[in-house]
Amino acid sequence: MASCPCPTEHGRPAIDGYDPVARVKALEQLLVEKGYVDPLALDVIVETYAHEVGPMNGAKVVAKAWTDADYRGRLLANGTEAAAELGFGGRGGEHIVVVENTPRLHNLIVCTLCSCYPWPLLGLPPVWYKSPPYRSRAVIEPRAVLRDFGVTLPETTAIRVWDSTAETRYLVLPLRPEGSEGLSEERLASLVTREAMIGTGLALVPARAAA
């Protein structure tokens, strides 16, 4: 979009002259006129993903797993049920699987075929997650992808990439950062970034989170 300051992944002007702004406006009008959609339902959907569902949900799950060993066990055994304990679930997260980072193993989530992502825990996927650079490279050169995010892992850390090719939706349980001992669940949740739960980042160390 011409007005958008972001890089090209938002899309370039269409080669066939297709104008999504005008098309979506016309389409909504038409679908409402024909009685196929209710604009109030559209507003609810937008409101849900603009404000109510987002990475703060996943961060709560991670913080609880860091502080409650029993919960961590339940989360790794059945992500869907453990997320539901905290009230999270639904569309795009019907079958949640949580995979745990360790000092020797780093997990990374991708959907090479489209944009599968655990909506109830992370909200809608960011543009980079849906774009060709990430989808093409995550499965073949994840260390180079991690460098794009400023993350360098020791060569001795094994990398496991999970390609989300079904309705199972993955979330990474990141390593609890050093210096986070004794922090409340709420403070811990503030250390958990979206990238940390996809595997393209690490949880923040407390000093950096405060900065």
């Binding site: 979009m1 979506v24 909504e28 209710d38 559209l42 603009a50």
Partner: peptide, 16 residues
């Protein structure tokens, strides 16, 4: 979550 209003409507129309 969205970069423009048309993106909001495209997502919502698709789901609805």
């Amino acid at each position: 979550a969205f970069h423009a209003r048309w993106e909001e409507r495209a997502l919502a129309l698709t789901l609805a």
